[in-house]
Amino acid sequence: MLTKEQKMKLYTNLVRVRKLDEIMVKGVLSGKVCGHWSSQKGQEAVGVGATTFLRKDDYIFFCHRGHGITTVIPKGISPRAFIAEHFSKNSGACQGMGCLHVADMEYGAPGLSGSLGGDFVLAAGMGIAAKMRAKGQVVVCIQGDGTYGRGTFHEAALMAANWKLPIVWGVENNQYMVFTPTSDIFPKENMADLAFGYGMPGVVVDGQDVVAVFEAFQTAIERARAGEGPSLIECKTYRIEPHTYGMVDKRCAGLRSPEEIEPWVKKDPVNLFQERLLKEGVLTQADVDRIDREAIEEMEEAERFATESPAPDPQILKQVLYWK
């Protein structure tokens, strides 16, 4: 059971991530964000539920959507470093070299594969290292549904299961792969079924319910820390935004209908958890307002910091490629 403080922390992280998303959208519109922004709005409960209570020395891999917003922020990377990286400033998490590829090994976040699904095999290697080090570290690797089409998952899943590596595979199933519905490319209802061929637990969980996500991951994380090997958790959610912010919103060759999106907007994970906590008496309306205000202040300050930071010095190009 979660304590009151833990529930407050989960809720606060949901709100922080939502406010950061809003700042990123503004950054795209003002031309400060370099490249694109793939909003994870409506899917925050997955990453926040899975990573808020990880140890600092645990490792995380995150899906392309949100560029890690729902995992690296709960894990401890600062919104300043996140936004500054997207503005390609030298104060960014990767000194302005990575843009949407936010990383900081101090928080166990090594980066994001440019080719989707490239992270699975790296997670297997971090699992090998975590097992060798024997300090109880785990690897939480949350990837989008589309990436599970890559052979890399199957190769990594086999290795992890065979060697009982401390890894939790997460599917953030938002039902879309750019314009292609996942149901068009995956023949079964549940991607969690992929687990059984590798002899690991496969669980389906409501991805809009942050507590349900937390509990499913907690069970798998404890199992991994105990040396019993990997698990696969499929979180059912839905992409309410287009593939990238402002992009034409297609389904196959046509357009996606608002009627399809509407029911999922009502299942907003932040609102759902807020209602529940108000009902349980964990939060008062005054708490809700304060958490909102503090999150907005935090993100606006981070945005100002990023805007005012200098661009990277081109001399860095001579230093970054090799260690010496």
Binding site: C34, S88, G96, M97, P312
Partner: peptide, 12 residues
């Protein structure tokens, strides 16, 4: 050199 992301370095 790999191609850096971001506004400022690609042109170098």
């Amino acid at each position: 050199c790999p191609i850096p992301a971001g506004w400022y370095l690609e042109e170098h």
